[in-house]
Design a protein around this nucleic acid. Sequence first.
DNA 1: GGGAACATGTAACACGTTACATGATTGT
DNA 2: ACAATCATGTAACGTGTTACATGTTCCC
Lengths: 182, 182
Amino acid sequence: MSLPHAILTALLEKPSSGLELTRRFDRSIGYFWSATHQQIYRELGKLEEAGHIRALPSDRPARGQKKEYEVLPAGRAELTAWVGRTEDPKPIRDALLLRMRAAAVVGTEGLEAELRRHLALHEGQLAEYEDIEKRHFPPERDTVEDRLRHVVLRGGIDLERFWIEWVRAALRELAALPTTPR
Amino acid sequence: MSLPHAILTALLEKPSSGLELTRRFDRSIGYFWSATHQQIYRELGKLEEAGHIRALPSDRPARGQKKEYEVLPAGRAELTAWVGRTEDPKPIRDALLLRMRAAAVVGTEGLEAELRRHLALHEGQLAEYEDIEKRHFPPERDTVEDRLRHVVLRGGIDLERFWIEWVRAALRELAALPTTPR
DNA sequence: GGGAACATGTAACACGTTACATGATTGT
DNA sequence: ACAATCATGTAACGTGTTACATGTTCCC
């Protein structure tokens, strides 16, 4: 139940249309809560019906026509309440860890290539985050908003670093295996 | 599409009934791919229909009666193929990171308490993993299967450590904020 | 006037979550 | 006989994914 709150956050940062939101999810918020444009349109509809957002008045019909949304006071209130709400961390759900576990039973064939591929992907993502950090969070700019957003980005950076280290450890372990089992 | 493969792995490690699987998910496989008993029963049905597993012959009717499953050759083949299959890492999706990001916009009220709660939960989970490591992976036992499973557990341990460090950094940042915004 | 890019949307399905229903076995 | 526990299952719903449909604007 977090997509609506991700959207409210994005819309408070800047009123946008569905497609603009989709693009911003691809670059920014979506690094921590991804969504496709279909999800976003569906959710925008619900948020509007709930009175949390409204479409900015426009004379023209809907289909094919840009539709900008802004957050209403009720939406801001809902987001404020949500920030302080209690929600347990979701247990890990990761296919790569599961693959490794399955490999212990049926053999590791093909796993090494997949691990190397993930290593490259995570290194790429890390580079992207570090680039954003350099561009958006230079030592000078230091508003309250920036500091909080910076902590979030640091989380993304350190998560990528964790994965890079884990994959490397897994590759070392595979290399050290007596013979490829099975 | 990983739940069936999680189940196949668990069943290869030991043929089980639905409830037994559910319990083992709560303790072991589920640390990396959790599932409720409803999901497991639904998936067992599909796997049986697909010819990947079969119920061990039993004379008695179904409802309320224990039903043990074992993996068929087709199921093992499917799991073996899946281990080497290609699948991109899922982008991060974490409500706590999102909350922090929202807090940058609507204020941090209530966040500190939630962060402390998560800190305690992650510390507890870490202790549990470390306990499992001590009990299941002593330096001596060192089969191929164990080494691979150990790498998986190390992943869980380091992920918990990451979260503990991140939450601590976030708390430091909150404490350093000039005044609670808004 | 035709294609590319922009923009919103529908439909169908897969997967996960929550609540509840039903039957069997065991212990008191 | 009753409650507790074991065990399997149904139903309804929310969210996420994939494929496709439709209309608009801009530019050649």
